[in-house]
């Protein structure tokens, strides 16, 4: 019989005598994992290292000329370019507005829809529909709905006697608009995660508490909320990271305007790198974004650990 190398595919029956069982398992494991790992190294780890290197140079995307400049790009961002702090502020405002709103709405909807009643499937379907819709389509449509006086939203408000703002033309309202439309787009996902978690809570907990005379609020506060802890953590981390990733939504709805009021990091990186050709500066921004997102994630995980 012919002995082929241990690819995991061809080694069959007879065992290669010089390999211990343990070693063989390890080799097979590495083979199984190698496509993912190779991809990770090539398209993620490598680029992450490269971005550090890029961020230390002055590099024009068009002319392709690069010179080493040390920390100048970081210096520009942190101390010289006033736009940078505005962008960081916007990104944080966006996250701080989006994450609690998204989670609160998701939890409220989940509490409303975790029990069976007539029409529950319909409502779950409706609240989840924007999740499967492309962000591009969503942004395009909302941009129309949020026009000044002729927009549908303001027509609706006018019908009940409220004069709506010119949503996408005033910096603060534009920020509100992109946050709320993004929440409507994504809240269904978190709602489903909460529903799954709620349905995993044994019914007798609630029944027992009711026997003791606990109110709905007490049941929620003392039983349900603590049991949702792990899910809440996952949702919080995912949603926070997601809020920093937002690009298409901003790109299509406001283009970062008005008055840079919705210019967030993800969009700013794109703008600096691909529209102004400043690869070095954009890479420094990418590194700063990396540090911010990693930092927030670690803080969230650590806070949670302290709680439990």
């Amino acid at each position: 019989m012919t002995m082929k190398p241990a690819t995991g595919v061809t080694v069959r029956g007879e065992r290669a005598p010089w390999l211990t069982l343990k070693m063989r398992e390890a080799i097979e494991a590495w083979l199984f994992i190698s496509p993912t790992l190779a991809g990770f190294l090539i398209f993620f780890a490598g680029p992450l290292v490269a971005v550090v290197w890029y961020s230390l140079s002055e590099w024009n995307l068009l002319s392709q000329q690069a010179t080493f400049v040390g920390l100048a790009n970081y210096n520009d961002a942190l101390f010289r370019n006033p736009d940078f702090w505005l962008v960081v502020r916007n990104s944080i405002v966006f996250a701080v507005g989006l994450v609690p709103l998204n989670m609160a709405l998701a939890l409220a909807l989940a509490l409303a829809l975790s029990r069976r009643f007539r029409g529950v499937v319909f409502f779950r379907t409706v609240f989840f529909a924007p999740v499967v819709t492309s962000a591009v389509a969503w942004a395009i449509v909302w941009k129309f709905l949020l026009q000044g006086e002729a927009g549908f939203v303001n027509q609706l408000l006018a019908a009940i006697g409220i004069q709506g703002p010119n949503w996408l033309r005033e910096p603060d309202w534009a920020m509100v608009a992109v946050i709320v439309t993004r929440v409507i787009k994504m809240v269904g996902l978190n709602m489903i995660l909460y529903i799954a978690a709620l349905q995993a809570i044994p019914r007798d907990y609630e029944a027992a508490a009711r026997l003791e005379g606990a109110s709905n609020w007490q049941i929620f506060r003392m039983i349900i909320w603590p049991l949702l802890g792990p899910t809440t953590l996952v949702i919080m981390v995912i949603t926070t990271i997601g809020s920093f990733k937002v690009f298409d939504h901003i790109y299509l709805m406001t283009g970062g305007g008005p008055e840079n009021g919705t210019l967030v990091l993800a969009f700013y990186i794109y703008q600096q790198g691909f529209q102004f050709f400043d690869v070095g500066y954009a890479s420094a921004l990418a590194m700063i974004m990396f540090v911010i997102v990693m930092g927030l994630t670690v803080v969230q995980l650590a806070l949670r650990r302290r709680d439990t």
């Binding site: 033309r169 005033e170 910096p171 305007g257 008005p258 008055e259 840079n260 009021g261 703008q271 529209q275 102004f276 050709f277």
Partner: peptide
């Protein structure tokens, strides 16, 4: 041009109030 237009944009936004 790209940088100039981008720098102008927020200030021109403020003009159109």
């Amino acid at each position: 041009s790209p940088q100039i237009l981008a720098a102008m944009k927020p200030r021109v936004d403020a003009l159109w109030r």
